[in-house]
């Protein structure tokens, strides 16, 4: 994936978040969200909330929804495991929860410590009652985020777009 491709689809997702009136953007950073996080931080229509752990984001966005704000949670697949108990809040209160998850441990992963969680991310989400929208090609990203956001906010439902390492390029520490 070229830098230009990366910025193009990140910009596309940012525009969809704007169209969906997303206001609170909670995140634990991932390289795959780098450009999107930057765009959200620069937007006067959004509040960016860096977290210490992903489950904070699930609770934060529940509070946001109580107060009338839409939000999105950006994280890496390893963060999904951190959220599991907090998904009960979203489910029992029937609140919307939109998540954009960049995958690790899934396509050409160089770090074996990422593989166990990466391999069960979608199963865990499904078990927790979260809708999943896996994407393996950058050309499908924008429409998938748009489709997921519609189902999340019109549900209300919890939904996660899973952005494959195939799109992001498997991380390496090679120079």
């Amino acid at each position: 994936m070229s830098q230009l491709d990366f910025e193009t689809w990140s910009n596309g997702i940012f525009q969809i978040l704007l169209n969906q009136k997303i206001r609170q953007v909670a995140y634990v950073p991932d390289a795959g969200h780098l450009h999107l996080i930057r765009r959200c931080q620069e937007s006067e229509r959004m509040i960016s909330v860096p977290l210490t752990t992903e489950e904070e984001g699930v609770a934060l966005l529940a509070g946001a929804w109580l107060g009338g704000d839409r939000g999105v949670l950006l994280m890496q697949s390893s963060g999904v495991g951190n959220c599991l108990n907090m998904f009960s809040l979203t489910k029992v209160c029937r609140m919307p929860l939109l998540m954009l998850v960049t995958m690790r441990g899934e396509w050409g992963e160089f770090n074996p410590w990422q593989v166990p969680m990466g391999q069960i991310t979608e199963k865990l989400l499904t078990t927790a009652g979260v809708l999943t929208f896996p994407v393996f090609a950058s050309g499908m990203l924008e429409e998938t985020v748009d489709a997921a956001a519609k189902m999340v906010f019109e549900g209300p439902a919890a939904g996660a777009v899973l952005i494959s390492q195939r799109i992001l390029g498997a991380k390496t520490f090679e120079k």
Binding site: R23, Q24, I47, V49, E56, G57, A59, L60, L61, A62, G63, A64, W65, L66, G67, G68, D69, G71, L89
Partner: peptide, 9 residues
């Protein structure tokens, strides 16, 4: 965290 999201909203 819920209080924070609510306070920001």
């Amino acid at each position: 965290s819920i209080g924070l999201g609510l306070a920001l909203a």
